[in-house]
C-alpha cells in the first residue's frame, strides 16, 4: 500500500494532466502543466531520486515552462482564439482519441498489473553522486550525444526563428503577408 504523499502527488498529477489537455485557454493549460511537473518532482522525491526531482523543478518547471510562457505571450491570444478553441473541442472530436487512449491503457494495464520480479528490497535514495559517476563513467558517450542534440536544437531554433524577410522588425503578424 503506497503511502499518503505518493498517492496525493499521483492524483494531483493525473488530474492536472487531464486539465492540461482539456483547457481551451493556453495559459491555463500551461499553468496546469506546471502543476503536473511539480507533482512529478514530488513523486521523484518519493521514489528516492532527489537529483531528478530538483532538475525537474529547475529545468522543466522553470526553464522550459518559461519558454512556453514567452511564446504564449508573443502569440497574443484573445477571445476569438478561445472561442475557436471551444469550437475545435466539440464532443464528437474526443471520441476517436479517447477510444485509442483507452485501448492503450487497457493494453498496458495487464502488463503492469503482473507481479514484478523480486527486486533488491525497499527503495533507497540514489544521490547525485552516484548519478554523476554513472554519467561520466559508462554513459559519457550519451552525455556527448545529448550535448550534440542540444546544440542542434539551438542552431535549428535560431535558424527557424530568424527573420527571413530581412526587414529587421519581424515581430509577428504585423509584417506578415497573409496566406497565399
Amino acid at each position: 500500500m503506497p503511502d499518503l504523499p505518493f498517492l496525493l502527488f499521483s492524483l494531483v498529477a493525473a488530474a492536472a494532466a487531464i486539465m492540461v489537455v482539456t483547457r481551451p485557454i493556453a495559459v491555463h493549460a500551461l499553468l496546469y502543466l506546471v502543476v503536473v511537473l511539480l507533482a512529478l518532482a514530488g513523486l521523484f522525491f518519493a521514489l528516492g531520486a532527489p537529483f531528478a526531482a530538483m532538475l525537474e523543478i529547475i529545468i522543466y518547471a522553470g526553464a522550459v515552462m518559461v519558454l512556453f510562457v514567452f511564446v504564449v505571450m508573443m502569440l497574443n491570444l484573445g477571445r476569438p482564439d478561445r472561442d475557436r478553441e471551444r469550437h475545435w473541442m466539440a464532443p464528437a472530436v474526443w471520441i476517436g482519441p479517447s477510444l485509442l487512449s483507452g485501448l492503450l491503457l487497457a493494453a498496458l494495464w495487464p502488463a503492469l498489473r503482473a507481479a514484478p520480479p523480486a527486486g533488491p528490497g525497499s527503495p533507497t535514495v540514489i544521490g547525485p553522486e552516484a548519478v554523476g559517476i554513472m554519467l561520466y563513467g559508462p554513459y559519457v558517450l550519451s552525455v556527448e550525444l545529448a550535448s550534440f542534440l542540444l546544440l542542434a536544437g539551438l542552431i535549428s531554433a535560431f535558424h527557424i526563428g530568424r527573420d527571413i524577410r530581412g526587414t529587421g522588425t519581424g515581430t509577428g503578424t504585423g509584417t506578415g503577408t497573409g496566406d497565399a
Binding site: 489537455v21 521514489l47 485509442l100 525497499s122
Partner: peptide, 24 residues
C-alpha cells in the same frame, strides 16, 4: 514503502492522457 509498480501505473495513465491531448 513507495511501490514502483504504482508509479508505473501512473506513468501509463499520464502517457495515455498526453496521447489523448496530441490526438484531440
Amino acid at each position: 514503502t513507495t511501490s514502483p509498480a504504482q508509479a508505473l501505473l501512473l506513468a501509463a495513465v499520464l502517457f495515455a492522457t498526453g496521447m489523448l491531448g496530441v490526438l484531440a
